[in-house]
Nucleic acid binder design. Structure first.
Length: 276
DNA sequence: AAGGGTGTTGAAAG
DNA sequence: GCTTTCAACACCCT
């Protein structure tokens, strides 16, 4: 469940459930999720650590501990649950953190794309993968000038440029579709073809769409209704994503679906005209 | 009923 | 360099 609003919702939920808890044991049953070090070393380093803070950057979740920060990326299907330590493991559970109070944090990931990495506190943003990242949409530096500098020379479609975390972090396929609809920009418009007003709209709607989605607890699509995970309600407010054939909420023209950069892309052919 | 698509991203190829 | 394609994995839908 991993675009910025979902990760932020998970961060807030986990903050209430696991801050202050002391890790007594970590069990890893899918090695590839743990980056750089062995699962055994990962488990050994975490034993005895207490979770002090929950933070987020883009789609990355940070568990700030005493001597390490655990950086977790959920990719496509990663999910966290808090359960009694004695509760049975789910079919797709790959990591279990047992706490001293008898509760536990479980990581489930059907597709095993997610990653976990331990770094020293304060070095989170300097690690590989996070060092070249763009700004958060809510950063005051995320301005027309900033975005222009990043993408105005590019011949890639704006859809791909907004998905590229080196330009701006946090947007994924759902919210890029929504932001481009609100901004009235055709997803295949190249960076080089964007007009001044397009940039202003992009800045405005990146912020408002994500802010609204966070308010609604993110978007839940294709999720288990276990009641233990985190689910949001923004799926009821999506305007174009997964709405192929449905009337545009603005002009009633049928929403179209095309592929851009290999990703499903939804837009209104009337409201979002291609600009040369 | 096999094949394409899926809330992602990094590595490889062009 | 910059841009596009594909693989990692498991399931769903057609």
């Amino acid at each position: 469940m991993p675009e910025l609003p979902e990760v932020e919702t998970i961060r807030r939920t986990l903050a209430e459930q696991v801050i202050g808890k002391n890790i007594v044991k970590v069990e890893v049953t899918c090695d590839r999720i743990i980056q750089r070090i062995s699962p055994a070393e990962f488990a050994a380093k975490l034993a005895g650590q207490t979770i002090r803070k929950m933070e987020r950057f883009g789609k990355y979740l940070f568990f700030v501990l005493d001597e390490f920060t655990l950086i977790s990326h959920l990719r496509m299907e990663g999910k966290y649950y808090v359960l009694p330590a004695l509760a049975p493991a789910g079919k797709y559970e790959h990591v279990k953190f047992s706490f001293s109070d008898g509760s536990s944090l479980r990581y489930e990931d059907m597709r095993k794309f997610g990653t976990m990495e331990l770094v020293l506190p304060g070095t989170e943003r300097t690690t590989k993968g996070l060092c070249a990242m763009g700004l958060e949409p809510f950063d005051e530096g995320f301005t027309v000038a900033y975005l222009k500098e990043k993408i105005q020379k590019s011949h890639s479609p704006i859809k791909s440029l907004l998905l590229d975390q080196k330009n701006v972090v946090g947007l994924g396929n759902i919210y890029v579709n929504e932001v481009l609809f609100q901004s009235r920009i055709h997803p295949e418009t190249t960076g080089s073809a964007l007009k001044e007003t397009d940039y202003a709209h992009l800045i405005e709607y990146c912020r408002s769409v994500l802010k609204d989605a966070i308010e609604f607890g993110g978007t839940t699509i294709r999720s288990y209704y276990s009641g233990l995970g985190v689910s949001g309600n923004f799926q009821d407010r999506l305007l174009v994503h997964r709405k192929k054939g449905e009337p545009c909420p603005r002009c009633k023209t049928a929403i179209e679906k095309i592929a851009v950069g290999g990703r499903g892309t939804y837009f209104c052919p009337k409201c979002q005209k291609k600009e040369a």
